[in-house]
Design a protein around this nucleic acid. Sequence first.
DNA 1: CGATCTGTCTACCATATGGTAAGTGACCGG
DNA 2: CCGGTCACTTACCATATGGTAGACAGATCG
Lengths: 206, 206
Amino acid sequence: MPSRRGPGEEPTTPERILDAALASFAGRGYDGTSLDALASGLAIRKQTILYWFPSKEVLLEAVTDRSAAELSDVLETALVEAGSGWGRIEAVVRSVFRLAVRRPELIGLVREMSRIGPPAATRFVADLEPLVARASAFLEAEMDAGHMRRHQPRLLLLAIYSTVIGMLTEVEVLRVFGEEPTARSLVRRRAEILDLLRSALLTEGD
Amino acid sequence: MPSRRGPGEEPTTPERILDAALASFAGRGYDGTSLDALASGLAIRKQTILYWFPSKEVLLEAVTDRSAAELSDVLETALVEAGSGWGRIEAVVRSVFRLAVRRPELIGLVREMSRIGPPAATRFVADLEPLVARASAFLEAEMDAGHMRRHQPRLLLLAIYSTVIGMLTEVEVLRVFGEEPTARSLVRRRAEILDLLRSALLTEGD
DNA sequence: CGATCTGTCTACCATATGGTAAGTGACCGG
DNA sequence: CCGGTCACTTACCATATGGTAGACAGATCG
């Protein structure tokens, strides 16, 4: 995997390929992405892609590996920096929302992987398992501390996850709901859904 | 569009095609579905499909039209039969869950349509708009009657929708959450998420 | 300077795909 | 019995796709 680049440096060719592939896999799907289209968007030839990634499947693996690492990074940071009580939970959920707004391709990729299924998805899911375990442990600790109602932590993660998925990837659905999904309305919606989760999760005494 | 068939009659060829196409579009995606594979699954030739539906795109339209009609039917029935108060809301949400369990392809299709985007998705979304308006009106009436907290009704619909999507289509994600998604666990999860929504939506006096 | 390696390109291939044209057998009204 | 329609087939086609083979230019190094 190419090493993470600094803000000033221009991306290397394999990095540019990974960026474009992530966007395309998330947006048009794996099957809907052709190496030719990918290459032409980068003003290179398809064979250059196959030089760096010997097959489309390997390219997908590289994309998922890098994305899983980024997802893990963001949530790990949020978990470490979080305060205590509801504010702590809120901070973590908010960091997920922020990530989804900043890098919607990552959410789109998760959705796409769930559709592709094994073996590619199995690998992705294995990459993410430590993250899920970590987040579950966090939620469980908050329950033990009485900061939130008793729920199965992984069930809660699923609720949060599916909310994020629903909010940020189903653009057409948002439209039928009568709103142009602008950045502004997304932020407002985020806040409202956070309230929704809040009232569902909070303990009585909060 | 072929007319709905009764329980005893065997399906006509175009109906069988629509059934298989719905399952495949929802499962493997539009791009991931080839007419050849579709046909071979039905033990017919691809040209028979093209005889009934002159192109793959028209087939998709036929599938979405029929699916939108079925979604509308189910929810309309639920809205009409619902009682009053929270029980009424619960009955409607439950009918959505039931539909999603019984016909997961419908949910998968919604997800796929949101990925495909215009123009196919626009048509689907237009077909569903009356349903969404109806459901919004229902929720708004419940708010007026004081049966639930004030929220934007379409926002609530989105929350319910995304929960259903997350629950019933992200099978791989369920797996990483440590559970084999059996019918039994899905039912239990449904109940728990219904509780989650309940506590989020209920008015204080309930 | 010459050999080698690295990154990208041109040329090509086998296969799969959506779609067209035309044929075939069964049924059906006259 | 016969012409026509219906449902479906075989035969075919143009294009797009993932992937291979090998050429070529520039940098690197002895």
